[in-house]
């Protein structure tokens, strides 16, 4: 299995606050890694460091062996190969759903309009939003907006897609449709790093789970490992709190 993304000893601080304290992990092709941990532990910062929206203070991020932190690297073209799905969707509000998805292929990859539209249709089909392509973001529900957000990332044909708590801004009844789409694209072979507390999703598709607390990876393992015999006390406490919160039920029934 070839390595898509290699994160090596990444450190990041904001002023006095040291958010990441040496994070190292890698993601192989078609792998799904779920990152979880308490709020403020550095999960979202880690994702923003990976695609250089917030460049790390030190460490190394390699995309298919190519460093993103070297001088002279074309960062915008590297970012085009790393998809990102945001907690707040962040759709372009003046563009129809379709154009939210075509704008990247058209403006960044330089495709002709027809090619970009074809590509967008495929991505929109994957997130089951074909009937909504002419709607503007404000005319869509949160779940629909997030699915278009996912399509926007997929249409770039990225090497890896980062998900930053994609369901935590959604009303409970809308979470299911987004998770279902994420399960579908994971099973279709999309390489993904997902920051989420949706343990049902993790159990269903994660190849590996990473528990982050206080800026470091505290424990890694398969979902089975975490749900049967987590070693670290902080992990146990955290999973217990999630269980209390969600009543011991997985949010997605498998």
């Amino acid at each position: 299995m070839s390595i898509v993304l290699d994160v090596r000893d990444v450190w990041k601080s904001y002023g006095e606050l040291q958010v990441l304290k040496g994070v190292t992990f890698s993601v192989g092709e078609k792998e799904v890694k779920v990152v979880f941990g308490p709020s403020g532990s550095g999960k979202s910062t880690l994702l923003r460091c990976i695609n250089m929206l917030d460049p790390p203070d030190k460490g190394e991020v390699l995309l298919k062996g190519q460093s993103l932190m070297e001088d002279g690297v074309n960062l915008t073209m590297m970012r085009a190969r790393i998809g990102m799905v945001f907690q707040q969707f962040n759709l372009f509000s003046h563009l129809k759903a379709l154009d939210n998805v075509t704008i990247g292929p058209q403006r960044v990859l330089g495709l002709e309009r027809e090619e970009a539209v074809d590509r967008a249709h495929v991505a929109i089909e994957q997130v089951q939003m074909t009937d909504w392509i002419d709607h503007y973001p404000a005319q869509l529900s949160g779940g629909q907006q997030q699915r278009i957000g996912i399509a926007r990332a997929l249409a770039m044909d990225p090497d890896v897609v980062l998900f930053d708590e994609p369901t935590s801004a959604l009303d409970p009844e809308l979470i299911g449709e987004v998770l279902q789409v994420m399960l579908d694209i994971a099973q279709a072979g999309t390489t993904m790093i997902v920051v989420t507390h949706e343990m049902g999703f993790a159990r269903a598709v994660a190849n590996e789970m990473l528990f982050i607390d206080d800026g470091i990876i505290v424990e890694t393992g398969t979902p089975k490992h975490f749900f049967t015999a987590p070693e670290n006390e902080r992990v146990r406490q955290f999973l217990h709190r999630l269980e209390v919160l969600y009543g011991g039920q997985e949010s997605v029934e498998q």
Binding site: T76, G83, M84, N90, F92, I103
Partner: peptide, 23 residues
Amino acid sequence: ITSGQLRAASSIGMTRWQSIRYI
């Protein structure tokens, strides 16, 4: 205009000028 849309534009590989021009 929310900074989130600018981050999204960056995340699909838009340059700063493209973000200004198109978003």
